[in-house]
Computed example of a mutant assay.
Amino acid sequence: MILTTVEIEKIKDFDEQGFFSSTYLAMDTRLEREVAVKDINVNGKVKDEEIEQFFHEALKLSRSEHPRILPIYFVGFCDTEDNENVIPRVVTKYMKNGTLSSVLKSHYNTGYTFPLDTIIRYAHDIIQSLIHLHSLDILHLDLKASNIFIGNDGKLVVGDFGQSRFLVDGLTVDAENLYPALIPDEFTKKGVVDKTADIYQFGILFYSMCCYDYYRNFLEDDYEIDVEVLKGLFGNPEEKDKDAIKKFGANLKRYKQDVKEGLYADGSNYYNYIPGKIIAIIERCVAHKVENRYNNFYEVQSDLNELVFPSGVSSYSEEIGQNSIVFKKDDVDCIINYEKNEDSKKYRLVPRKNIQEVTRKIKEKVTDRTLRKEILKLADSL
């Protein structure tokens, strides 16, 4: 067997790192172009059968070419100081616009949620990539914002296929090292997953686009199961804190139980600019029982298409902590304040267009159940 290498010069590490890999920007010195490099973390010597499996999966992934899937330039091994150990390496196109995770984080730092119209457009991009992958019987199995890239055309490109697997008779049994927050319950119990595992992960990814700060708070503070915690607990196999690992296990169990009981279906865990239709889609995607989820991404797409976004409305988002929805209607700045009357427990919607209050459009006595729908209808009518 010939272990192929590629001549690259490392430029810098990327800000976002996976637990099972190291990623960085590099220069391909032969072709004189910048590339993204991912070195897979392995412990000890890689067996010949593992090498064959690595190339076998890479071959199939190379055949998954699609505008919404990150192009793979090279798959091989990087040089090590001894000849006994080899490190699998994947070289891909460098996406200079960064990841969806970095864009979401940057946007929420402005004090506003991510625009709903952009969320819907991005969701369709991801769905298109997954429809294509599933047509080739490929599962992605690592759908999170840090693995989604912003293309030069402004559309999303799905990358990082380190956890991808290929279906045999509709199932895969060799999925392992999955990101804990994305593991569906059926894999924990039965050790197998099918295409609905990607649908489950898409639901959580969809939620993270709608409520990124809530989602990060869940993983980083409430349940403490994010990548940085994983690295601290399992990054050095020679130094293991058994008490910390036990606590992590308890947190993960609590998280999974809360997801099962409706963590991502509870309307109180969403901003009010998110329509009930999207909440219902996410709820079905992350359903605990496989039979209660969507069967395929065509069904997800069909339900998402039923959400009619108001004509002429753009940049539709919520000002965090201010009970106000901001957007543009035909390029005019608009805002809708929603105020709750504590006595009646109903809302009063006060719209403004170009700073001026639109008195004739004020809505009174809006209930919790209809608030999201009434806000969107009012935006459409301005």
Rank of each mutant, 00 (worst) to 15 (best):
I282D: 01
E306S: 15
A280L: 06
K260C: 10
K256S: 08
G235A: 10
I279P: 00
D243G: 04
V300Y: 03
V286R: 01
E261I: 11
R254Q: 13
N272T: 08
A250H: 07
P310M: 09
K240G: 05
P310V: 08
S311F: 11
N251S: 08
P237N: 11
L230F: 07
N251Q: 05
S314F: 04
F248M: 02
P275V: 07
N236H: 05
A265T: 13
K231C: 05
E306K: 15
R284M: 08
S314A: 13
G312C: 07
E283D: 13
N251I: 02
L304M: 14
E299S: 13
A280R: 12
V286Q: 02
Q301Y: 12
N251V: 04
V313P: 00
G249K: 13
Y294Q: 00
C285A: 07
K256T: 06
Y255E: 01
R293I: 05
C285K: 01
L304Y: 07
D241F: 06
H288F: 15
N296T: 11
S317H: 08
K240P: 01
K260M: 12
N236L: 06
A244R: 14
Y270N: 02
L230N: 09
S311N: 13
L230P: 03
P237M: 09
I282G: 01
P310N: 09
S315C: 08
V259H: 02
V300H: 02
G262C: 10
K246T: 14
K246A: 12
S315E: 07
G276P: 00
N272M: 13
F234R: 11
V229N: 04
K277H: 11
D243F: 13
E299P: 01
F297S: 04
N295H: 13
D258W: 10
D303Q: 12
N272R: 14
G312K: 03
K256D: 04
Y316G: 00
L307K: 08
I281F: 02
K277V: 10
I225E: 00
V229Y: 02
V229H: 03
S315G: 09
V313W: 03
L263P: 02
Y298F: 15
G249W: 02
K253F: 07
Y271N: 13
Y294P: 00
D243P: 01
E299V: 06
G262N: 09
A280H: 08
P275T: 08
K260T: 12
